[in-house]
Design a protein around this nucleic acid. Structure first.
Length: 593
RNA sequence: GGUCCGGUAGCUCAGUUGGAUAGAGCAACAGCCUUCUAAGCUGUGGGUCAUUGGUUCGAAUCCAAUCCGGAUCACCA
């Protein structure tokens, strides 16, 4: 049990024993003691003052006495300032804690249970390459999955490929009209970028055609409906759903190009999935469920044949679930997918990592599933994250300000290489080792940068700031790890712990241990909040306090043999926790850098 | 217009769910490499926590109103 939980438990116990009063542990507030006061943890007394009719002073002294008397192996002393009871943990406790855990690679993680969670993330459209926003999504989703694993859950990582629909037809139509049979092979392009170019071409041609129609006297709305290339795309969607062979063949060919490109990117950024769903499979099930919902009276049909759900009673609007031409809309397939997932995995929680622009969509999806009476409905959770913007504002396809994922990764790795070469610390590395190191650092910097911010908040990607490898960054944490490993390659950690029994701790030694002790609580918190930034902030905190310790005290040349052993254990423990925390973020840590 | 989200140092972000004098990083300035990796460490300056009112022992945190920014309310996905 972590110390804060123990303090709460003992506080409850003390109040029960001293005052014959039962209180809830959740009503007890325990903080880390502010550095300007003496102590490690602080119990806030104000809330009990009224209940127990005692002054904070007396209450604090009585409770403090109870702590030290009844749990002397844990608490060495206490003091009361205003309404705060400050407790000092004994050095002995810290040292035995260190000895017990310093080589435990699973420290902080929970035992496996059979609770199953599904995390869906990435979910690309197969008509254009991944961009920076997808990277935030991938890193978040992957990390949340790892955090759940660390909390003992059985995790299924999934991805839905949005591989059909009007947007896919757009790039297909444009390819037919403009490509003259060109392929990724014939042009030497990565497949996803190749197809993306035709999606852009569609947009340009569409704009040209609507402009011409408007110039010819048509209204804007009418022109947008009547543009021949749009009509061609809509017809293609109908043909696709009808299974027209040449359309299906083209669709398979172009999607194949895209997947090949995606595979490369996913491999590069270290993203993977246990199960990939395809919208082209789930939309049929969605359409069947629409028919079922129509029978149940959950949905209703308008005169033109389109199918809707009325959510005005829930404070929302009417929402279309199937077009008048019978084709599926976006939410149709999501209804099918929700059922599909649950039938296959019986997961109690289904997390969707999707941008906050779709908050409304997921509210509607959950409501529909609940009204349909699906057993999976209540477990649907939308992990909504904010958009990634540039200092100049939102990324816009039309203005060409979209930051491409592949380009960004290349750039970060190149900067990692440049810094590494300038510092010249790994001149003896082989080509392969260097390449791996550049990837580790470049991707580490990128991932950390995107994951260190609270997911809920939209964030600004500042290119200049992102290439800084100092301070609150991935490379800073990686560097701390490399430094420790460097020492541990030269020095042996002894087997005999008994010699440490009489040791006392210096301020910085204790602060490092105290920080490490928090790791378990951090893992729990990150899971409860579904928030990897909790881990990122913590990893940085560990590295920072260790670096202070490192520069102040020598490990290899410690004052005594006992101190050397203690500090080697401390260093080893720190390296393990850094490595473990960074792994939860999908970031590797190097042995040298 | 309805609904939802946000506003903390010049910039980017924390703030343990209501606790002590609001913290980091970057940027600026001043120091520290004959000692385990200086991608590091130490110090200085920098704040009307958007505004106003309320709730109470105590508010950046909770409530209300206002201002500012964003998202969404499509037979796009």
């Amino acid at each position: 049990m972590d110390i804060i939980s123990q303090v709460k438990k003992i506080t409850r116990e003390a109040i029960a024993n001293l005052y014959r009063t039962e209180i809830e542990e959740t009503s007890i507030q325990v903080n880390e003691t502010k550095p300007e006061f003496e102590g490690d943890y602080t119990v806030v007394l104000f809330s009990f003052v009224k209940l127990l009719k005692k002054s904070p002073e007396i209450l604090g002294n009585e409770l403090g006495g109870y702590f030290v008397q009844n749990h002397p192996s844990l608490f060495s002393s206490s003091n009361v300032i205003k309404g705060f009871l400050n407790l000092s943990i004994s050095d002995k406790y810290w040292i035995s804690f260190l000895q017990k855990n310093f080589s435990d690679n699973n420290f902080g993680k929970k035992e496996k249970t059979n609770h199953r969670v599904m995390v869906e993330y990435s979910s690309p459209n197969t008509n254009k390459p991944l961009h920076m926003g997808h990277l935030r999504n991938n890193f978040l989703g992957w990390s949340v999955a790892e955090i759940y694993k660390a909390n003992g859950y059985d995790v299924v990582k999934t991805c839905i490929a949005n591989d059909r629909g009007i947007h896919i037809c757009k790039s297909m139509v444009a390819w037919l009209q403009f490509a003259n049979g060109a392929t990724p092979e014939s042009t030497g392009m990565k497949g996803d970028h190749f197809v993306g170019d035709y999606y852009v071409k569609f947009g340009n041609e569409y704009k040209k055609q609507t402009d011409e129609l408007i110039a010819g006297g048509m209204s804007k709305e009418e022109a947008e409906k009547e543009a021949p290339i749009m009509k061609a795309a809509q017809q293609m969607l109908v043909d696709w759903e009808a299974g027209k062979p040449d359309v299906i063949a083209l669709w398979k060919k172009m999607n194949g190009w895209v997947y090949k490109g995606f595979d490369e990117t996913y491999k590069r950024i270290g993203s993977d999935f246990d199960k990939i769903y395809y919208e082209s499979d789930t939309y049929i099930l969605g359409k069947n469920l629409v028919a079922e919902g129509l029978n149940k009276g959950v949905f209703f049909q308008k005169e033109d044949g389109s199918v809707w759900i009325d959510l005005t009673a829930e404070g929302l609007d009417q929402k279309i679930v199937q077009r008048k031409d019978g084709t599926a809309v976006y939410i149709t397939q999501d209804i099918g997918l929700a059922v599909n997932k649950y039938e296959e995995f019986k997961n109690e929680l289904s997390i969707y990592v999707v941008g906050d622009e779709q908050n409304y969509h997921f509210k509607v999806l959950k409501l529909i599933c609940q009204k349909m009476g699906f057993p999976s409905a209540d477990g649907i959770f939308h992990l909504s994250y904010g958009m990634v913007e540039l200092p100049s504002g939102r990324m816009k396809t039309r203005e060409g300000t979209v930051v491409d994922a592949d380009d960004l990764v290349d750039e970060m790795v190149a900067i990692a290489q440049q810094h590494t070469e300038e510092l010249g610390k790994v001149k003896d590395f082989t080509e392969d080792e260097l390449k791996e190191l550049y990837d580790t650092i470049g991707l580490g910097a990128l991932k950390f940068y995107l994951v260190r911010v609270d997911p809920k908040k939209r964030m600004i990607f500042n290119p200049e700031e992102s290439i800084d490898f100092h301070g609150f960054t991935g490379p800073f944490v990686q560097y701390t790890h490399a430094r420790i490993r460097s020492i541990l390659r030269k020095e042996k950690i002894g087997e005999n712990n008994a010699i440490l029994n009489q040791a006392s701790l210096l301020k910085l030694e204790k602060e490092v241990i105290r920080e490490l002790e928090k790791y378990h609580a951090i893992i729990v918190q990150a899971c409860e909040e579904m928030n990897p930034s909790v881990i990122a902030n913590y990893a940085f905190g560990v590295a920072k306090i260790f670096n202070s310790f490192y520069s102040e005290h020598s490990i290899a040349n410690a004052e005594t043999a006992e101190k050397k052993q203690l500090r080697l254990q401390l260093a080893n423990f720190t390296a393990i926790v850094i490595k473990s925390a960074m792994e939860l973020l999908g970031i590797k840590v190097p042995e040298r850098m």
